[in-house]
Design a protein around this nucleic acid. Structure first.
Lengths: 355, 355
DNA sequence: ATTAGCACTCAATCGAAGAGAGTGCTAACA
DNA sequence: TGTTAGCACTCTCTTCGATTGAGTGCTAAT
């Protein structure tokens, strides 16, 4: 049995209808709504074939058919190039809002994930860049209090991270800028995770020159740098629109809804989910293709975002397998590209001056 | 008809039972479970009286009674001092986690609201301090890029706020520390919302002394300060545990759940809700006492948190009117006090040195 | 190869019957 | 006079059979 032209037409019609209504599709519906020029009986025969081929199932013997994961897979593979080409105008327009309000990475990501979920009406995620892989450009200490100090780290990619340090001994305020300068000089070029014992030693040496009697607090400071900077927020996941699923008929069952919510609210499992996805620009995992059984009724659409040509994070949308793939794929693609642009604009070195 | 001792006992028993089970309470249940030494018939008579007095209602003629808002109000007023006295041991223990991980205000608030919701099993909120009322202590500019600069503002209360500035003209890097010092000197002591045209003028004057040809970017910088600092995040609301309500029998109805969720997910209305609450240390609004009709089946318990004796923000829990008031009130109280301590420890000036 | 016709299937809906929890009232009792 | 046993009554909730209706599969005709 082969998937001839008419079968394809019927299959697509069934998928389209099911995506729309979430209701099993009968032969009459297809013959009426979609002009195929054949009677319901013929369609019934074809549907029976399609079921045998694994593209359709029946919830029960006397009901219409619903598409299987295999059907969605076929459907997505078919529309793939088309969906990728389709730039969503509305989406692009909305994304501009992010751009205008953008300044810190945090707010860019927060806004982006919100827009993605509002636009697709599904639960959306953004995995933030792993900071520990970022390269240090400059370090500035800002005195806050007698023994509290704000450590501002500017990365090579212009992302800024700040940590409040509480030290047991007071820091010599009058030398703070010199200390900052020394830290910058010694640490720029290193990744956060690179700061090891060796580097620490030479740093201590250098800092002693500035002020000998402040050794204690400086030592504490450097200690903090070497022990804590490497493990900065390994998996920071932004999510939005989790409660959107309550609007979907497939989650009218409260238990199902609860199960879904407790899965996606757990940032660890979501982070793992995105980690297991390979590094393709875009992926679509349908139903049982997902590694987590909790998502066997869901599809996951992911994309990456980059900086300087390197993938620094991922975005994704999770919805029911019965989702508007065309729309969601192009939305995720648009968002991914928009984020690339925005991050480029906001974090690219404008000039090569190293002071 | 007066609320004699036995009526009170019965009323409390009914409330306790209803809080437990969410099911209308019958006379037999009361007479069995709670030792009152009287027959169901007697209790029926008393219940009838209590209904007449407005403390109970019947969902339908042949069902048990459920407490009215008035009953909860009476109940809460009765246990008020007791609940306030009860420090929850578990709660205090959990709160320590916040304390240990505390450094930035943001993470303190985020952790606190999470703990509050996990502990009470209800939706919890924290309204962040209004930054525009905070007094500036120090300003530090951190160069990031040719024409991008991080503005770090340390407040008198040691809260730190940073904004990334994108300027059209490059900033003179070599004078950045002098500019920072000047900004600090001129602006410290003012509130963010105080920075007006007058102050702006004198600031510009002073900065020109540093570097005349950099006037454009300095002007831009000062302009930004005066126009944007005053309107910093007027109503930053943290929330957690919104989906907890899906576990409550009263929200088995998906439409009700959706209505609730869409209300509490709207930070604006939540912020307004907390604004309308007066400045008492603790408030309890039961059912229709709430200003929003969306919350007429809910109770809101709020408390404040302070810094230097001044209220700087609010916390609150929203649950069904049938909530364990005793537990929630003491949890909110404990959290409020814990936050006071934590904020005190983290943000109090350790020393009076002004450099 | 297509299609009209028809018997068949099965979930969903509807309604009547019955169960059960609870009340209000009355009359008896301490 | 307050309390209580007894009983009829009310009303929701559950159960279960009947009905409906959408949809199928098969057969025979075109």
């Amino acid at each position: 049995m082969s998937l001839d032209k008419r079968k394809v037409k019927i299959l697509k019609a069934i998928i389209a209808s099911y995506i729309d209504n979430a209701e099993a599709v009968g032969s009459r519906t297809i013959s009426k709504k979609y002009e195929l020029g054949v009677s319901p009986a013929t369609i019934r025969n074809e549907m029976s074939d399609l079921e045998e081929m694994g593209f359709l199932t029946q919830p029960h013997t006397s009901s219409g058919r619903i598409p299987t994961d295999k059907a969605y897979r076929y459907y997505v593979d078919e529309l793939w190039t088309k969906a990728l080409g389709a730039q969503d105008k509305n989406m692009r327009q909305i994304i501009r809002i992010v751009d205008e309000e953008a300044n810190e990475l945090d707010s860019i990501l927060r806004n982006s994930v919100r827009i993605l979920s509002q636009f697709t009406k599904y639960t959306s995620f953004i995995v933030a860049p792993q900071l520990k892989k970022a390269v240090i450009k400059r370090i500035q200490l800002v005195p806050v209090d007698e023994n509290k100090i704000l450590l501002v780290i500017v990365m090579q990619n212009n992302i800024v991270k700040q940590v409040m340090l509480k030290l047991n001994k007071p820091i010599p305020f009058d030398q703070i800028d010199r200390i900052s300068a020394t830290l910058s000089k010694k640490l720029s070029g290193y990744m956060l995770e690179d700061i090891n014992a060796q580097l620490k030693e030479s740093l201590i040496q250098e800092l002693y020159h500035i002020r000998e009697n402040a050794g204690d607090s400086l030592f504490e400071l450097v200690n903090f740098l070497s022990t804590n900077l490497g493990k900065f927020e390994d998996l920071n996941v932004y999510s939005d629109g989790i409660t959107n699923i309550l609007n979907l008929p497939e989650y009218n069952d409260l238990d199902k809804a609860r199960e879904f919510i407790s899965f996606v609210e757990d940032k660890d499992s979501v982070a793992k989910l995105f980690q297991t996805e390979n590094e393709n620009d875009m992926t679509v995992s349908i139903g049982h293709e997902n590694s987590y059984k909790e998502l066997s009724d869901c599809s996951l659409i992911t994309a990456t975002y980059k900086f300087n040509g390197k993938i620094i994070g991922k975005i994704g949308v999770i919805g029911p397998t019965r989702m508007d793939y065309q729309k969601v794929i192009s939305a995720v693609k648009s968002m991914s590209e928009a984020m690339n642009e925005i991050i480029d604009q906001n974090f690219t070195e404008q000039d090569n001056n190293k002071e």
